[in-house]
Write a protein that binds this DNA or RNA. Structure first.
Lengths: 220, 220
DNA sequence: ACAAATATTTAGTTTTGTCTAAAAATTTAT
DNA sequence: ATAAATTTTTAGACAAAACTAAATATTTGT
C-alpha cells in the first residue's frame, strides 16, 4: 500500500467507526482536507485492490482485508505514541504529528520489537486501545475516577472542573494528562481514594476523584 | 525536501565523499538504480533549489546547503541505527533497510530527544561517525586492535582471519560485530590486551587482537 | 411528486518522478 | 586529429495523486 492509500484506509476506518457504517465521499474529503473528486478516484483504486466495498453514490465500507490493514496502521501509530511519551518524554499532546509519519514505516520486525520493548502496552497516551498483531482490541470508555471499581486502571485524559485550584492541585502532585492511574482502594467513610500514579502511591479526596476523567478499557 | 530529493542528496554526498569530487550522472543512476535521464531531471530541480551546483555534462557538486542537508539525513539514519541495535536488539546487519525509511521522518524535536535518549552516541553500529546537529563529525578509520594505543575505543567491524577457530572464539566470548570495544591496557611481555566489551572486562592474546578490526574515530 | 439543494462522479489538467528513444556532447583510441 | 565509443541531455510519454469545472444522482422540502 502507498502512503496515500494507507491514509485513506485509516480515515475510512475512523469515520465508519470500524465497519459499522458506510462512509460518504464528502466526509472523507472533509476529514482528509482534500476534494470529493480526489476521493472518488482513490475509492475506485482501493476497490480494485479489494480493500473497500464501493458502490457509486452509496458510500464505502472496508472489506475484512481493509479493516485489518486499518488496524495495523492504528497499532503502529499508537505504539509509536507510547514510545514518544514513555521513552522520549514527549507530552501527550505533542505526539500526533510525528506518529502520523512513523505509522507508515514498513517493517513487521520493527513493530514486534518495539511492542516488546514498550512492555506490550494495551493503550496509548490518550487512553485509546492498541490493537494486537492480529487486530483484536477492547473498546475504551471515559469515566470519572469515582465511577470506577477498585483495581481499575486507565489513562488520565481530562478534567471536569478546570478551576485554577484543581489544575494547581494536579500540577503540585505531578499529575499530567497521559499518565497511567490505578485505583488501589476506596475509603467508605469519606469516599477518598488510594491510587497509584507514575509508580507512586497517594490518597486523593472524593472531590478530586470526581473531577478527573480516566480512559479505561471496557471489560467485555 | 521530498523523499526523493533527500535520496538524491544523500547519494551525491556519498559518491562525492563529502564535497571533494564532482559526481557523474551515470554514477548516481547506478547507485540509485534508476536511469541517467531521470537523474538529469532531478539535478535540474536540485540546482533550482540551490542544493547542488550543476553544469551540464560536467557532473554535480553539493552546495553548502546541500552538504548540510545530506549530513542531517545521515545523522538521522545513524541515530536510528543506534536505536535499533542498542534498544530494540537488532543485529548490526539488519538495520539498514529500516533506517532508510526512518531517516526521512521530519521532526527536529524527535531527533534531539532520540539523540539524548541514546546518550549522544558519536558512532553508529558500523563504526561510522554520527554528525552533530550542526554538521560536524570526525572521520573514522579501520584498524586492527593491535595497531591502536591504550584508551582507544571503537566498534568491531570485521575479522582478518575468518577461520572456524577464530569465529568460535568470538562466539564463545559473546563478541559480535557492532559491539563497542575499549582497549584498557597492553602487556609488554606477551602483547596481550586488556579490553572492555559489552561492559565486561577481559583479556585477549596478541593473536586475537591482530585478527579483529575496529572502526575508530580519527583524533585531531 | 417535483423543483431546489446537496452530494457525487466524470472529464480534462497539473505536478512529481519516472521511463524510452533519439540527439548531442565528451572522451578514448588509433 | 578524427572516428568510434561512451556519457549525458532532450523530447515525449506515463502513472500516481491531486485539482477545477461541468455533469449527473440523490435527497429534501413543499
Amino acid at each position: 500500500m502507498t502512503l496515500s492509500e494507507e491514509d485513506y484506509i485509516k480515515a475510512i476506518y475512523h469515520l465508519g467507526k470500524g465497519m459499522e457504517q458506510a462512509v460518504s465521499t464528502n466526509s472523507i474529503a472533509e476529514q482528509m482536507d482534500t476534494k470529493p473528486s480526489s476521493v472518488t478516484d482513490m475509492l475506485k483504486k482501493l476497490s480494485e485492490k479489494d480493500l473497500v466495498f464501493y458502490k457509486k453514490y452509496k458510500g464505502v465500507l472496508l472489506t475484512e482485508t481493509g479493516r485489518l490493514s486499518a488496524l495495523s496502521i492504528i497499532r503502529k501509530h499508537r505504539l509509536w505514541e507510547v514510545f514518544l511519551v514513555d521513552k522520549l518524554d514527549f507530552a501527550w499532546d505533542e505526539v500526533h504529528e510525528v506518529a502520523e509519519q512513523l505509522e507508515h514505516i514498513k517493517s513487521e520486525k520493527l513493530i514486534d520489537k518495539l511492542d516488546a520493548y514498550l512492555g506490550n502496552p494495551k493503550v496509548d497516551p490518550h487512553g485509546d486501545p492498541i490493537p494486537s498483531k492480529d487486530g483484536e482490541f477492547k473498546k475504551s470508555v471515559k469515566r470519572l475516577v469515582t465511577e470506577l471499581p477498585i483495581g481499575s486502571q486507565g489513562i488520565c485524559v481530562g478534567v471536569n472542573d478546570s478551576s485554577v485550584a484543581f489544575l494547581k492541585f494536579l500540577d503540585k502532585n505531578n499529575i499530567s494528562l497521559g499518565d497511567t492511574l490505578e485505583i488501589l482502594d476506596k475509603e467508605d467513610f469519606d469516599g477518598s481514594l488510594s491510587i497509584r500514579i507514575k509508580g507512586k502511591e497517594m490518597r486523593i479526596s472524593e472531590q478530586i476523584g470526581s473531577n478527573l476523567f480516566l480512559e479505561v478499557l471496557e471489560k467485555d
